[in-house]
């Protein structure tokens, strides 16, 4: 019977080959050839021109900052949710899935209203006699947009690894004389590491490659590597150049994937839902 069951995977394997693997190979093909279909390294090396390099370094910097902030915000939140001893996961779904029914672009745009010079935040600040903050159209706004949009992808994997920790393990550590700090550093943190690694990847990769958030909250002043690639495809129609730059970007994605597979062998962290 099991032999027959295996054939159920055939449509899936065909589908994923046609729409995931072959398309990626086509990106490699376009990235390594020029318009005439001849082999070239030009499109890859284009990443090292000053303009593109600046965009890449800036993207790496902003996505690194966003990932760190997400981790710092998400870990306590995941701990609180774990200790809240929820009977069902519906509360988690409530907080993190529900916002997705308001379009991603709209959610991001509405930060403009909140952050504008005469926006909601500054109105509150001046009512409290605090100095106005100029955030919109600066890198700060982009980091905020990244943290806001990708925070759930940090909270959910960490939460998932934390709920799996048996209370008895923690109690045993306490009984054996460990203080809260020791319990955390010796028990909770190591056991939650797969979730942390998954979370880091799932925040870092979309932050590194976004072009929408920088577009909407950066006011066109901040050019990230995602914007460069989007321009190549949508305005310059230079698919070879766009593919070449995407391949360089893929290197960072692959490094992240390798990390996840190393630390999260059962993929329990990516199983966020």
């Amino acid at each position: 019977m099991n032999n027959k069951k295996r054939f159920f995977a055939v449509p899936y394997v065909v589908w994923m080959t046609a729409f995931i693997i072959i398309p990626l190979l086509i990106v490699v093909y376009y990235g390594l050839t020029n318009v005439d279909g001849k082999f070239t390294m030009e499109n890859i090396l284009a990443m090292f021109t000053p303009i593109n390099m600046k965009a890449l370094v800036y993207s790496l910097l902003l996505s690194f900052i966003s990932t760190v902030i997400c981790l710092l915000l998400a870990y306590p939140l995941a701990m609180i949710l774990r200790n809240a001893d929820l009977k069902s996961s519906s509360f988690i779904i409530f907080i993190f899935i529900l916002p997705m029914w308001m379009n991603f672009l709209l959610r991001t745009i509405s930060w403009q209203t909140l952050l504008e010079n005469n926006g909601v935040l500054n109105t509150i600040l001046s009512a409290l006699h605090l100095p106005k903050q100029h955030i919109i159209n600066t890198p700060y706004a982009i980091v905020l947009g990244m943290v806001y949009n990708f925070l759930p992808f940090m909270v959910l994997p960490i939460y998932n690894t934390l709920v799996k920790i048996d209370d008895n393990v923690i109690n045993a550590a306490r009984d054996l004389g460990a203080n809260s700090y020791q319990t955390f550093s010796k028990i909770t943190w190591p056991l939650s590491l797969p979730g942390v690694i998954s979370g880091i990847t799932m925040v870092f990769v979309p932050s590194l490659t976004t072009f929408v958030i920088s577009d909407l909250l950066g006011g066109g002043k901040v050019h990230l590597i995602g914007n460069v690639i989007e321009q190549e495809f949508k305005f310059k129609y230079d698919w070879n150049m766009g593919s070449g730059l995407s391949l360089v970007l893929m290197v960072f994605v692959l490094i992240s994937m390798a990390f996840v597979t190393k630390y999260d062998k059962d993929m329990e962290g990516t199983n966020v839902w």
Binding site: A9, Y12, V13, M16, F19, I20, I21, I22, P23, L24, I26, V27, Y30, T201, M202, V205, P206, L208, T209, T210, F211, G226, I229, E230, F233, W239, G242, S243, S246, L249, M250, V253, S256, M257, V260, T261, M267, T270
Partner: peptide, 23 residues
């Protein structure tokens, strides 16, 4: 097969979008 399943989840959306368009 699980590794293949994880590609679209871990890969950047922009790369997935571009690769399908090029396909």
């Amino acid at each position: 097969l699980m590794a293949i399943t994880n590609i679209p989840m871990l890969n950047a959306d922009i790369v997935t979008g571009i690769s399908l368009m090029l396909l």
